[in-house]
């Protein structure tokens, strides 16, 4: 398996299209996964507007905003890496992927701070929950589920990026391999998911 071309393909162009298409379908599925959770959020928001507004004020908006900026920037570096890989610009690819990994790690670090601050403020549903309104617990249930599922996706994405970056570094994988673009697509989807979660979890209930 020396070149980028793999069985059962006969042309790299076709293979690249299949990698992109396959990834897109898979991302369609991923989008449905988060759509299910967001539906749960929307339904509960509609049933308990007061509790959700109350609870929405408790999330760490500064950290959430910072994380959004970090993730948007990581999408930039990942896009550069994917384009550079296709153009076979080795240094730019490696830099792009390295920066993406660093930004991803920064995102998770900020997320970790945020979670521990939430725990200190007793924002984990259950006995001793900080807010009296019962439905506020539902908001935070969804907050924990969505952010941790998203973080798991980040970890998955970082694993893939690290693996591909390592292979590119070792020259074990030709830069023309469609895998770089597929990984970038996945990374961008994880970014898009966060873009949607951000207003739901951090911006609700801020207005006077």
């Amino acid at each position: 398996m020396s070149g980028a071309l793999r069985e059962p393909w006969r042309s790299l162009r076709r293979q690249r299209e299949a990698a992109a298409f396959g990834t897109w379908i898979f991302l369609g599925g991923e989008a449905m996964l988060f759509a299910g959770l967001i539906l749960a959020f929307a339904v509960m928001r509609a049933l308990h507007p007061a509790g959700f507004i109350l609870a929405g004020r408790e999330t760490e908006v500064a950290l959430g905003t910072a994380n959004t900026a970090i993730l948007l920037t990581s999408s930039l570096t990942m896009a550069v890496a994917a384009e550079a890989a296709r153009a076979e610009l080795r240094r730019a690819t490696l830099w792009g992927m390295g920066l993406t990994l660093a930004l991803g790690a920064a995102f998770l670090a900020v997320k970790g701070f945020e979670w521990s601050s939430d725990l200190e403020k007793h924002l984990f549903p259950g006995d001793g929950f900080a807010l009296a309104e019962p439905s506020a617990q539902i908001f935070f249930a969804l907050y924990w589920i969505m952010t941790s599922l998203h973080a798991m996706h980040m970890l998955g994405g970082m694993t893939v990026v690290a693996w591909l970056g390592w292979q590119a570094w070792r020259r074990a994988r030709p830069l023309r391999s469609p895998a770089f673009e597929a990984a970038a697509l996945y990374w961008h989807l994880v970014d898009i998911v966060w873009i949607v979660l951000y207003p739901l979890l951090y911006l609700g209930g801020r207005a006077p």
């Binding site: 900026a69 930039l76 384009e83």
Partner: peptide, 28 residues
């Protein structure tokens, strides 16, 4: 298909993506 007419140099790539990133941050 997925075009082969991709930018071949780093500055060209950056010209493509940097404005998008800026727009994203402004929107944020």
């Amino acid at each position: 298909g997925i075009g082969e007419e991709v930018p071949r140099t780093l500055p060209a790539i950056l010209r493509h993506v940097l404005p998008v990133w800026l727009a994203l941050l402004v929107l944020l």
